[in-house]
């Protein structure tokens, strides 16, 4: 997969990935990108150009909130966490993604 197509595939699912990551624990932007990369075994690399706008979008939609906090190294960072409606949205998103993936798989596995 070329980096370009990978990025395209990611764009649609960035919201889902961010929500999922934040459902584990509140985290700052850099941490989110590291976590996604780590969880996907370095396959998914989140571009900052889509990560921060996505965070802004989700916050505006009320799915996540943010506040200033300090990291373990005593640095100030913006921490994002899931809201109740964000948690609900995550469930729905996962559901619809699974449906989509299954359907896609069904089509692709046709001999």
């Amino acid at each position: 997969m070329s980096p370009q197509t990978q990025a395209d595939a990611l764009r649609g699912s960035i919201d889902l990935l961010v929500l999922k990551t934040l459902s584990l624990e509140p985290m700052h932007g850099w941490g989110i990108s590291q976590r996604i990369q780590q969880l996907s075994s370095d396959v998914l690399e989140v571009n900052q150009g889509s990560l921060y706008p996505a965070l802004q979008r989700l916050e505006k939609a009320g799915l996540i909130t943010s506040r200033w906090d300090t990291t373990e190294n005593n640095r100030r960072a913006r921490y994002y966490s899931l809201t109740a409606s964000g948690r609900r949205a995550l469930g729905e998103e996962i559901e619809s993604w699974r449906r989509f993936a299954t359907a896609l798989e069904a089509v692709l596995s046709t001999p």
Partner: peptide, 9 residues
């Protein structure tokens, strides 16, 4: 806020 977040990143 944007500046600080980016710098942190």
């Amino acid at each position: 806020r944007m500046d600080e977040e980016f710098r942190f990143h």
